[in-house]
């Protein structure tokens, strides 16, 4: 090339050797896991601001605005109560069925909406990804934060429902806080996982609703978990270790006086819940990081 020929010490070098001689780095190279985590930490303000912005934007066209944050879970609970509590009468052997149902529903909904939004957190933001340079994990993580903010609003509704249906306010309720935090970490991991999968195959969002519905039926949200005890032994064990069932049972244990529970041992519930948070959180993060260079290809 004519331009490189002008430079004496660099003549005869290939492009790659020239780049190496002057310490240039490959554009868009994937950073190490530690470096990536450090950069992500530096972007925490962006993650928070983006999560907030999404939350505001999602209701900005509705007349009732942010009120829907409370109205949506409330309407949801009413519909399911009508079908499973009144029409199918699943409530016969469950004390405080309304409390049982809404707890399960709201806790499950936290993961469900996070996963559904997370599937599109990369593929739905290609414009931003192709325009600016930032750690891509910021996007799925801010999706998780948005859903966590939604959860806090629905928890206010849930506590109201549980109190109205006659549950006493006890110290046990404090257990709800670590349980929700563990679930949030687990969710972040799952969202990172589906975000990378959804970035490659944008048709994943067509399949996701079916997977989530199956997961819901396996988590004892709408009916008594005692139904699972009729399954063969291995299947019951499988359901016992289902992370969502674990988080739902933790919340039911915290809020309700006499909920029917599949897991008898509280220690086991906490251990399984914490293990899922660690495995899901770290696993999802590493899986997402390994695909960092590919986001934005289309």
């Amino acid at each position: 090339m004519a331009t490189t020929a002008l430079v004496d010490p660099d003549t005869g070098l290939t492009q790659a050797q020239l780049a190496a001689r002057h310490g240039l780095r490959v554009a868009g190279e994937r950073p190490t896991l530690v470096e990536y985590s450090r950069r992500l930490w530096a972007y925490r303000h962006f993650i928070a601001a983006y999560a907030n912005a999404k939350l505001v934007a999602s209701y900005s066209n509705a007349k009732l605005g942010q009120l829907w944050q409370v109205l949506t879970p409330l309407t949801n609970a009413a519909v399911y109560y009508l079908i499973f509590g009144v029409v199918l009468a699943q409530n016969e052997n469950i004390p405080n069925f309304i409390g049982y149902l809404t707890t399960g529903l709201f806790i499950f909904n936290f993961t469900q909406s996070a996963v559904l939004a997370g599937t599109q957190s990369i593929s739905g933001n290609l414009g931003l990804i192709r325009a600016l340079h930032f750690p891509r994990a910021s996007l799925p993580l801010s999706t998780t934060v948005t859903q966590f903010q939604q959860l806090l609003a629905s928890m206010v509704v849930l506590i109201g429902i549980v109190l109205v249906t006659g549950e006493p306010l006890t110290l046990k309720w404090l257990m709800l806080v670590p349980a929700l935090l563990l679930q949030a970490v687990f969710n972040a991991g799952v969202v990172l996982l589906v975000a990378r999968m959804g970035a490659k195959a944008s048709d994943l969002k067509q399949v996701m609703p079916f997977i989530m519905r199956t997961w819901m039926y396996g988590s004892g949200v709408l009916y008594s978990v005692s139904l699972f005890e009729r399954l063969p032994g291995w299947a019951t064990t499988l359901v016992q270790f289902n992370p969502l069932l674990v988080y739902i049972e933790l919340a039911r244990y915290a809020l309700l006086e006499q909920p029917p529970l599949l897991n008898e041992s509280l220690t086991q519930l906490w251990l399984v819940g914490a293990a899922w948070a660690v495995v899901g959180g770290i696993g999802g993060f590493i899986y997402f990081w390994r695909g960092e260079q590919e986001y934005g290809r289309g």
């Binding site: 492009q15 790659a16 780049a19 240039l24 490959v26 868009g28 990804i129 325009a131 340079h133 590919e294």
Partner: peptide
């Protein structure tokens, strides 16, 4: 660094 190259390299 916003789009990956399929072959070759950009430093």
């Amino acid at each position: 660094g916003l789009l990956p190259v399929n072959r070759g390299a950009i430093h």
